[in-house]
Every structure is written in C-alpha cells, then in structure tokens.
C-alpha cells in the first residue's frame, strides 16, 4: 500500500496541518515507508479476534452527580491567546 502526495494533503486537511510543497516528497516517502512497516500486520490471522482497546480488562467507574468545580475562569483564561468579556475569540465562524 502506498499513498500519493495528494492523499497526504487530504489527510493533512483532516488533521488541520499544512504541508508545504517542498516538504511533500520527503514526507510522502517516509509516510510510505511507515505504511510498508504496517503491511506486516496483514500477515496475522486476526479473524474474529476482539480488538484490545485497553490493556486491562476493567470497566468504567462512575462519578456521583455532584458539582465539584467552582468558577476558575480567570485562572484558565490567563493562558488563553485571545479573550474578551469572558469569551474565547476566534475568526468569524460561518454556519
């Protein structure tokens, strides 16, 4: 399996990353080398094997429905790049 530069651009768009033209050939070749490595997986006979999402066979513990957090806006927004009137600002969003 190997991918083209165009596919890499599409993936980059999904991941919100930019790929400069001059980076593309090297990125494509390292990407394809990694996919070659992945090909080894196909040899494993995994039909019917339950995927293992978590290393421990545990189940979710549940939190009581209690409000434990107080307003931390000032501290949390101290690290924000751009806020106004308590809101985070981003370039205009069009629906």
């Amino acid at each position: 399996m190997s991918v083209s530069g165009d596919t890499i651009r599409e993936i980059a768009q999904l991941a919100r990353l930019a790929v400069e033209d001059d980076e593309l050939p090297a990125l494509t070749s390292s990407f394809n080398a990694i996919l070659d490595l992945f090909e080894q997986l196909q040899a494993a006979p995994t039909d019917g094997v339950e995927p293992m999402a978590n290393p421990l066979d545990a189940s979710q513990s549940l939190r009581e429905d209690v409000v434990t957090e107080t307003n931390q806006r000032e501290a949390l927004q101290a690290v924000a790049p751009l806020t106004e009137d308590g809101l985070y600002l981003v370039p205009r969003v069009v629906d």
Binding site: D65, V66, V67, T68, E69, N71, G86, Y88
Partner: peptide, 19 residues
Amino acid sequence: RSKIFSGSATTFGAEPNTQ
C-alpha cells in the same frame, strides 16, 4: 447537576465560561 464527564455545573444562563 454536573456535566457528563466533569464536576462542572450545568445551570443554564451562567456568565460565559464560568462553568
């Protein structure tokens, strides 16, 4: 009373980002 994955309040109409 609290959010699905955190202990923040879910009250409607609070000042922006205070919950």
